[in-house]
Simulated scan of single mutants.
Amino acid sequence: MTRPLRLVAVSGGLQRPSKAAALCEHLMDLIADEVLCEPRLVELGQLAPQLAGAVWRSQLPDTVERELAAVEQADILVVATPVYRGSYTGLFKHFFDFIGQDALVDKPVLLAATGGSERHALMIDHQLRPLFSFFQARTLPLGVYATDKDFTGYRLQDAALIERASLAVQRALPLIQLTRQAGLAAAEEALMA
């Protein structure tokens, strides 16, 4: 039997509920509809007090270490952050500063962001994509950007955005399948060794 893929979403939202977390959950649900996976949502707003003041990973409490390990061990990542002053939040960057430099190599990452208006939509390509390129992750071709008007409460309601999210996941599936095949081949190789 094939093990479920570890699907981890990181929401850079600072409060709960958060539109970034709602976008993460929507994207995770779309992936889970297509691929057997174990979804996990990491909400950075909930970790903020434990991240504050830490300069080295060794200074972090176990609760944060578990979330960092989950991201590093994920088969697929979904990341979403609110846009703050034209970029991701400082908390989002601070969290990823603790991720091992080689931990995300070749990992598929679906990029997403939320903002007050359309004018920050390119933040995905100008801020998030370079960050994950540093990690040598495989950022997926389509990012998903949502504005406040795309939500009713904390649920996506805009038909065009819902369609784009679905298209982003559909275009990601071939890479996700390659990830699954690579994981199966590695597991088989380990058994034979």
Results as ranks from 00 to 15, higher is better:
Phe134Ser: 01
Gln136Met: 07
Ile76Thr: 00
Ala113Cys: 12
Ala146Ile: 02
Ala187Tyr: 13
Val78Thr: 00
Glu189Lys: 00
Asp148Val: 12
Met1Lys: 13
Arg164Phe: 10
Ala70Ser: 08
Ala9Phe: 12
Ile176Ser: 05
Ser11Ile: 10
Val64Pro: 10
Gly45Asn: 04
Ala20Val: 03
Val83Leu: 01
Thr139Lys: 11
Ala190Gln: 13
Ala187Phe: 11
Tyr145Cys: 07
Leu30Asp: 02
Ala80Gln: 06
Glu72Tyr: 10
Val42Ile: 15
Phe134Gly: 08
Phe132Leu: 07
Ala112Asn: 13
Arg164Pro: 02
Gly116Ile: 09
Ala159Ser: 13
Arg171His: 15
Pro141Trp: 12
Ala185Leu: 08
Pro4Glu: 10
Asp62Glu: 14
Gly53Asn: 08
Pro141Phe: 11
Ala186Trp: 13
Val79Gly: 00
Gly86Thr: 04
Leu131Pro: 01
Gly86Asn: 02
Asp97Trp: 14
Glu25Asp: 13
Met28Cys: 09
Ala165Trp: 07
Phe92Trp: 05
His120Pro: 13
Thr147Trp: 05
Thr63Arg: 12
Leu7Gly: 11
Pro82Glu: 00
Phe135Ile: 05
Ile76Leu: 04
Leu41Gly: 02
Ala80Asp: 03
Met192Gln: 11
Gln15Lys: 07
Leu104Glu: 01
Met123Lys: 04
Glu34Gln: 15
Gln59Tyr: 09
Leu60Cys: 06
Lys19Asp: 15
Leu173Val: 08
Thr147Lys: 10
Phe151Cys: 07
Ala113Ile: 01
Ala187Gly: 10
Phe135Glu: 05
Arg66Glu: 14
Pro49Ser: 00
Leu111Ser: 05
Leu184Ser: 12
Val109Trp: 04
Leu110Ala: 08
Arg57Asp: 01
Gly115Leu: 11
Leu51Gln: 11
Ala160Trp: 14
Ala48Pro: 15
Leu140Phe: 15
Leu175Met: 14
Glu163His: 11
Glu34Thr: 01
Ala103Cys: 12
Val144Gln: 01
Pro39Ala: 05
Phe151Ser: 00
Arg3Ala: 13
His26Ala: 11
Val78Pro: 04
Val55Lys: 13
Gln181Phe: 06
Leu68Gly: 12
Gln50Cys: 10
Gly143Thr: 03
Gly53Glu: 09
Leu30Met: 03
Met192Tyr: 11
Met1Val: 07
Gly143Asn: 12
Gln59Asn: 06
Leu111His: 10
Val79Cys: 01
Ala168Val: 06
Leu60Pro: 14
Ala74Thr: 04
Ile76Asn: 00
Leu175Ser: 11
Ala193Asn: 14
Thr152Pro: 11
Glu188Gly: 10
Ala80Met: 03
Val10Phe: 03
Val35Thr: 09
Val78Gln: 03
Cys24Leu: 07
Gln157Pro: 05
Ala185Gly: 05
Leu47Ser: 09
Glu72Asp: 06
Arg164Cys: 03
Ser117Tyr: 09
Gln127Gly: 03
Leu27Cys: 06
Ala187Val: 08
Glu65Phe: 10
